[in-house]
Design a protein around this nucleic acid. Structure first.
Lengths: 238, 238
DNA sequence: ACCTGAACACCGTTCAAGT
DNA sequence: ACCTGAACACCGTTCAAGT
């Protein structure tokens, strides 16, 4: 965030940096976050990370088996940073929503990571701890074991998928371009022939609202999910 | 599916094929499906498609602006093939689930496409038609406009994300490897210290069931979503 | 208009050689 | 043990030249 974005001041050499700080997994992961945030998922590559560390790409492979492991390490660091409260049985639904929203926001800050996280079963130490504590909230809801097992799978998937989708926007266009694009999309949909697209025509007013908080859609979906999960309470004993 | 998977019979030359069939967008898209299914998302590239067509990669660019457009065309063809029934107000929830399940299965047949679809607002002609008809089902549920707008966004996202996640497995390991991997994962979780991971420990029996139909999890999540959506019925007029 | 060979720019990873 | 320069294999895309 801070100094890594700036060009080197005159007189300082990249070499100096690399000699001061020796390479380490932690340093690599930390720098990788900076590079990912600056360049996005598509622009993120081993060469860029090495460059930001003042070394060559080959040097990274002494600490990390490859790009995939590096992304895994980043995901685990992100997962470990999610804070999960002590379960309060009276407020478990709110607590669950709060944690999933935090996950969503964390991935939204690093859109590329959401993409990398999709399709992975988390197994790093940081993620495991967070998962266990998150399960505590679900169990406070008196849900059957099987529902807990499903919910712990589905809820983070939803957060990840939504952050990824949302992140595509943020990555591709700035705020101004985005609203303009949404307005064009709105126009396009309104211009569709009503006879061939009667349903789009009927609800077109509700489809796009450029003023809308981007998180509102996410919150709505999350609410649907948690409502559906809570409805599973009771029917089966476990 | 049929002849494109077979090697060339002896005596036939690639050239013959390319001269018989001229290149076209449709031919390229069709061949792209074969290549994607054979090689997966990571192995899918323009060179491979060109090769399967008996030509060089540069030739594709006369018909398609690039890899991204080619993937968009594939997605649109897939979306157009989804059949949506006439709305039956008494069975709208079942109908919605059936369509979303079809989308899930379609993406599961071509796992790479799910990845490509994430983060895209569908705008091809085939997708638009399917979306409009799908909205018809939601409107039969008497849902407020805003809920229809959210649901039409969230439900396909869920199907896509889940198919993508599921597809990673299918792409990386065959049935035998998958069950073995799940068994190892089961063992690993059971071996976690109960004091540090009390909640995982408590529900570990329900977490992994190698016998379980992989679609059961998806169906469960979809059920939660639709239940949550249906609960939005009525409160607001629209 | 459509196709092609060749090349450009870029990237993950490996390897032999250095310290 | 850690780091590095150089190279390999691969890929999306462009371009000038052909038909």
């Amino acid at each position: 965030m801070s100094s890594a974005e700036l060009p080197d001041p005159p007189g300082s050499k990249r070499r100096a940096k690399s000699q001061r700080k020796r390479l380490s997994r932690d340093a690599i992961v930390g720098t990788a976050f900076v590079v990912l945030d600056e360049r996005g998922y598509d622009g993120f590559n081993m060469r860029g990370v090495a460059d930001a560390l003042g070394t060559g790409p080959a040097s990274l492979y002494a600490h990390v088996t490859g790009k995939e492991e590096l992304l895994d390490l980043m995901i685990d660091r992100l997962a470990a940073a999610i804070e999960v409260p002590e379960p309060d049985p009276d407020r478990w639904q709110e607590q669950v929503k709060a944690v999933i929203t935090d996950i969503y926001r964390a991935f939204l800050e690093h859109p590329g990571l959401a993409r990398a996280n999709l399709g992975k079963i988390p197994s790093g130490p940081g993620a495991l701890h967070t998962i266990d504590r998150f399960m505590g909230l679900l169990r406070a809801g008196q849900l059957p074991k099987k529902v807990v097992a499903y919910a712990v799978d589905i809820l983070p998937l939803f957060a990840t998928a939504y952050a990824f989708e949302q992140g595509i926007f943020a990555e591709r266009m700035t705020g101004e371009d985005a609203t303009r694009y949404l307005e064009e999309l709105d126009e396009y949909w309104r211009a569709l022939p009503a006879d061939r697209f009667p349903n789009i025509h009927a609800v077109v007013d509700a489809l796009i609202d450029p003023e809308e908080d981007p998180e509102a859609r996410f919150a709505f979906g999350l609410d649907m999910l948690v409502t559906g999960i809570a409805a599973q309470r009771g029917p089966r004993r476990s």
